[in-house]
Design a protein around this nucleic acid. Structure first.
Lengths: 337, 337
DNA sequence: TTGAAAGCGCTAACAC
DNA sequence: GTGTTAGCGCTTTCAA
């Protein structure tokens, strides 16, 4: 077989019309039993597979989902990606990935997949609409979109992610349950995620009737460097917390490094908590107590939501929040008063 | 604009034929300057974008590359993925990813993208041909393929990856340069990678005129558990090495954990080296000295090779080996005799 | 239950 | 340099 078999080859071999072949394959119920069997046999004999390009052209559907992420190499994203892929594959969809590196021109460029009909829907891990879609009169018609991980500001787009408020609240409550009262929150920031995590912290403190020392809430980027810097700034103060609740594991790691470098013993001298459960959280010394993001589930839920929308069904809820799980390791100790 | 503009809309607006529009867009040289400008203007006005499905159907090309990987969530793969994506995007290609989880039926299933013309080429990070392609009379015609990371056995498929032999040799030579002579290699195994890494170790030892104590070469899987187990088996012996050269960082991590648990101080009592430079290598205590895989470059080189093949150019060499870089951290110390 | 035929939007051969 | 036209392989009316 030099050339792949077409629907015509199958039709003539089975002695039916191409319409019947098409129906036998796509709507088996509408075809007589004996006819269908003949078609199946002919398909097997010719090794026929539907030419997706032709079908897509005709049906204006690609069965492809475009995923835009700032950095697929980031474990946080790559694990969500696995969930996305698994769910898509299960329903016969393929995924197309665009690594945007937060470059607006790249984001816009990937929209060609949408406008050229190569993708039916869009998953955004970027935290914002790509430029071409954001414009008032968008350059491209809006396909079904789901935002993952980070909700989109100023846009009514369905969202799937971890429940940051409840997650950090759980974390803070764990610290409180260990007797800590002077708990610092490192990671105040402008991003939606930072704000929600801080809100969780405040909720827990309030709920426990604990006063928040304003100097215990520090701005800090969610990076190892950020965590490090925050500790340095903290240590010019008189009053010190007994526990550090960090906006994420990367920052917590910086805190641990910085504290260790200052000669403190953890968790004896200070307790530290992170959020995310990144892969090396368990390999730090001491192993980091943190909240685990259900990354695979987040990916799967997002894709399910998007595919549901693609089927024309309005989702029951435009927001899916998944619970983070408390992972007890060794960076938190009972507070000795 | 309820419906997206087609080439006909552009043609009639510009007052030319659809063929001219097509040419103006795809072969600008073949069109008169003034005509081209009219077309460009009409395109801008209508917001036209080529319908990729129609073009693909006509040209029998999809400008899509299928990437098969056992686990995209694995940082080792996800970082290669970034390189692949970047290189593809630069040349106007999109990437389609298939997460196979080493499941043969999933591998085969993804070939539908090939057989249905949705992908022009294939990148394999799986270490073997998918079942549908491996069969004597393959179910699918072989598209251009490049194997990455792990060469395919028994198949003449172009390969791109790190130079494992030279890499481990460099690692061993570093240990030797620090005065170590009793160097153990943990990670003997059947896989191509394990064999090459062991070969690098032997080469270095031979090159330095050092005898290899056969009991110093241990089988062990490239996992933290594997490294742990190997140390335990080692310690029932009388003779102990002064340095552990591990098949990868995961195993090295197990070694460090096991050695630390036994109360040894590293790197004072033993030196440990890994291979890969995984993300938490720098966060272990002591930070791991290792060989860094140029993952991004591996991805980019693979994609470049594949796209070159797709253009019908036979690659100059069917094997691209990239050098691993020595990353000096703190798990290796001068040997005190 | 089946077949004939239109047509999805585009590129490329051919003619002018 | 430009236009006409065939046809890529398929799904889907419409008629029988």
């Amino acid at each position: 077989m030099a050339k792949p078999a077409t629907i015509e080859d199958v039709a003539s071999l089975a002695g039916v019309s191409i319409a019947t072949v098409s129906r036998a394959l796509n709507e088996p119920g509408k075809v007589a039993d004996t006819t269908r069997r003949k078609v199946i046999a002919a398909v097997a004999q010719t090794g026929y597979t539907t030419n997706a390009m032709a079908r897509n052209l005709r049906t204006r559907k690609s069965n492809m989902i475009l995923i835009l992420a700032p950095d697929v190499g980031d474990p946080n994203f790559s694990n969500i990606l696995v969930g996305l892929e698994t769910a898509a594959s299960k329903r016969g969809y393929g995924i197309l990935i665009g690594n945007t590196q937060n470059d607006p021109s790249r984001e816009t460029d990937y929209l060609r997949f949408i406008s050229s009909n190569q993708a039916d829907g869009l998953i955004l891990l970027t935290g914002h609409l790509p430029f071409g879609l954001a414009a008032q009169k968008p350059a491209v018609r809006l396909p079904p979109i789901v935002a993952v991980n980070e909700p989109l500001p100023d846009a009514d787009i369905p969202f799937v992610g971890v429940d940051n408020v409840e997650g950090v609240r759980t974390a803070a409550e764990h610290l409180i349950s260990q007797g800590h009262t002077r708990i610092a929150f490192l990671g105040r920031g402008a991003s939606a995620i930072a704000r929600m995590r801080e809100a969780g912290y405040r909720k827990a403190m309030e709920g426990a009737g604990l006063r928040i020392d304003p100097s215990f809430v520090l701005e800090c980027e969610g990076t190892t460097e950020g965590g490090r810097g925050a500790v340095e700034r903290m240590f010019v103060r008189d009053r010190l917390p007994s526990a550090f609740l960090c906006v994420n594991d990367a920052a917590a790691l910086g805190v641990i490094i910085s504290l260790s470098a200052r000669g403190y013993q953890l968790p004896r001298d200070f307790s530290v908590m992170g959020f995310d459960d990144i892969s090396y959280a368990s390999f730090v010394t001491p192993p980091l107590t943190t909240m685990k993001q259900p990354r695979h589930d987040i990916g799967a839920a997002s894709m399910d939501l998007l595919l549901t929308m693609l089927e024309g069904i309005e989702p029951r809820s435009r927001q899916v929040l998944l619970r983070a799980d408390l992972i007890l390791r060794n960076s938190v100790a009972m507070h000795r008063r």
